Simulated assay, not measured.
Amino acid sequence: MYHLLSTPYIYESKEKMLSDMEEMYKNFIKMNYPVINAYDSKNDSWIDVKKEINPDIIFMSNPHKLTMSGYYEDLFLNYICLYVPYSHQISRYSNYYAQYNQLFHNAMYKIFAPHKVDLLIHKKYSENKGKNVEVTGYPATEFFLDKKYIAKDVWKEQSHKKIRIIYAPHHTIDLPELPFSNFLKYAEYFKELVQITKDTIQWAFKPHPLLKMKLKKHKDWGEARTNVYWDFWQNQENTQLEEGEYVDLFLASDALIHDSGSFLAEYLYVNKPVLFLTSQDDIKKYFNPFGCEAFDVCCHGKKKEDINFFIDSLIKNNDPMKEKREQFLEKNVYPFHKDKIPSDIIIESIKKTFKIA
């Protein structure tokens, strides 16, 4: 028997924190998952995991201290904890500490890595030299390759067929140690593109979940401007705002323009054109070797003209990186989906480790 536990993100206001938890809880209920809300609204209290659940095994979902101690270090220091990385592990910053060598990583009973490079990094940079790491592939992307999966068309209905482009900006507007985001540079230009291309292109705005919060605190943005910007994407005839699940969004799209982290690898699974917006010429030094390989099979954009050229290529049905993307998938992705999928590999590993029949 298993349960999902909806836990708080503590760097928001209490009102926002509880609202997000409730939304998460309801979404899991809709998907028929057995879920527990860590917040008890009747008693204005928080669930004590040991007293009220006392699990045998815990899957952790994020290595960073973003929640209360009772749902972070109190768990991984006292229980058998396993971890599937929350992203496809493409980045390199702070000497790999944040993603590979926190107390969290070294305390995990087992980490299920998305690719072979991940294991090599753990071996070199983790205190425990990657002794708890097993390479399984990335389970979060299985639907992209599942031929039996029937995707829902989540795109807004249009009067006629248009090219479907996702714009997915990253949140790192305030992180010089990981300078992915170009949002402040291109935010208004993408609004212009929406109007210019309204007869040929429909757009989905898929921002990183942390971007909105950071913009509200930014000196040149603030809450009012941020809300107006989000409303724009929600309300145009050829746009939509996407802040949740993205499997169906990706599958029914035609292309992606972004500067995000995990999407650098994830979108390659659908094998469609992608433009990565670069914030500086040496951006590859912020990718690990796997991330560099993923980056090399994308189109790159340094200025507005590169975005225009990419869109024009889509209109002309040109896809210059298709062969390179396929080579990347053959080398780095398909081997983990050939005989078994990553989630099955993980389940088998758990059963074998704990001698479960």
Rank of each mutant, 00 (worst) to 15 (best):
E242I: 12
E12G: 04
Q89A: 06
W221L: 09
E326V: 10
K191P: 02
E305T: 12
D44E: 14
P289R: 00
T141Q: 11
E192I: 15
F232N: 00
C292G: 11
Y109H: 13
F143A: 15
K304F: 11
P169D: 06
Y86M: 11
L193K: 02
H160V: 13
A113L: 12
P335G: 01
Q327L: 14
N308L: 13
E157K: 13
I53H: 02
H300V: 14
K185D: 13
N132R: 10
E330R: 09
E266H: 03
G291C: 09
Y97G: 03
L4V: 14
E192M: 10
A151W: 07
V228M: 08
L275W: 03
P342R: 03
W155R: 07
G137M: 04
N132P: 07
T353I: 15
K50L: 13
L145D: 02
K162T: 15
I47M: 05
K123H: 05
Y71A: 01
K116Q: 06
I150L: 08
Q327I: 14
M68H: 06
N318Q: 15
D199K: 11
M31Q: 13
V35G: 05
E237H: 07
D339N: 13
R225L: 15
V133A: 03
K116E: 15
N317A: 09
N271T: 08
F336E: 02
P273M: 03
A98D: 11
D254W: 00
N62Y: 11
N43C: 09
K217C: 10
E23R: 10
K198L: 10
E348T: 08
F287S: 01
L241E: 05
P139I: 14
W230P: 01
I347M: 09
I311S: 02
D44C: 07
V84I: 15
I196Y: 03
K14D: 11
Y286W: 08
D319K: 06
E73I: 05
V270D: 02
M17Y: 09
L275S: 05
G222Y: 03
V135P: 04
Y9Q: 07
Y267M: 02
N182P: 07
P63H: 04
E23A: 11
K331A: 06
L251H: 02
V35A: 06
E157G: 08
A252S: 11
I80P: 01
Y9A: 05
Q195R: 13
V333I: 15
K351E: 11
L66W: 05
V49N: 00
Y100S: 01
I350Y: 00
V228T: 15
P34N: 15
D74P: 08
S279E: 07
